[in-house]
Amino acid sequence: MNEYRQEIAALTMRWVRRLSREKFSMLFTLIQPMLFWLIFFGNLFQRAADVQVVQAPNYISFLTAGVVVMTVLNNGLAGGVDLLFDKENGFLERLMSTPIHRTSVILSRFLFVTTVTSLQVLVILGVAFLFGVTPATGFFGVAVILLIGMLFGVGLTAISMAMAFSVKSHGDFFSVLGFLSLPMIFLSSALVPLSAMPKFMAMLAVLNPMTWAIDAIRPLILTGWADALRPLAIVLLIMVAFDALCLYGSAKAFRRAIG
């Protein structure tokens, strides 16, 4: 058990070191969702968006839940990228030739992605606060938001890592990533509530786990516990099922790649 902890701590530390050395890319990953989506998009649509339709005091407060989950989505889907490079340059083989538990590398990645994402979500909520968005359910609500983010993020990171282990080249990986990310956002309740969507898009959006995460987080920010409990119960069930499915699939891919 001690050995296991030592391995995971060291491997996680490596991801932290890498991030701190890549200052430029760190800045981009951290700032991009806030700058682009929350500040620009949120303010741009302030007057175009009908508060009757979005059912929020203003568009930016409506959008905050969406930006939180989008960040979880993007970080999760990109969570396997570093393993992909490790696989391609042989570093993964070096790691796997040491007597570490076969799950340590993957666990370190989950740990790292979850932590970075949670910090980022906190920063996003902080920026939203500067624009006058105060979570209606307070600190406990923020904790629940983080929990939902973590649950969703684990499944996504698992998908990303499974893809990293299965693709033939990193070109494939990035085209799938690019193909997935934007439609996932548009076919969810991130930018527009389901009720205001064209029928066929709303039908697809219901199948998107992202929608359920957003619809649970939104009342935590906008209204309060009374409205949040039902969607919370639903999203917890969906996320547990989603994670189970993703972890099962990625375990298979991992075993095939590493044995």
């Binding site: 050995e3 030592q6 391995e7 701590a9 060291a10 491997l11 530390m13 490596r14 070191r17 890498r18 050395r21 890549e22 340059n89 042989g90 570093f91 083989e93 070096r94 790691l95 030739s97 040491t98 007597p99 570490i100």
Partner: peptide, 29 residues
Amino acid sequence: LIGYVPQERAIDRFLTGREHLLLLGDLYH
């Protein structure tokens, strides 16, 4: 019981030489 030196330059360009060795030290417990 074994050590392995891979064919590719399996190096993490962002880590220093010492950090590589420290990482492996932990992986070998």
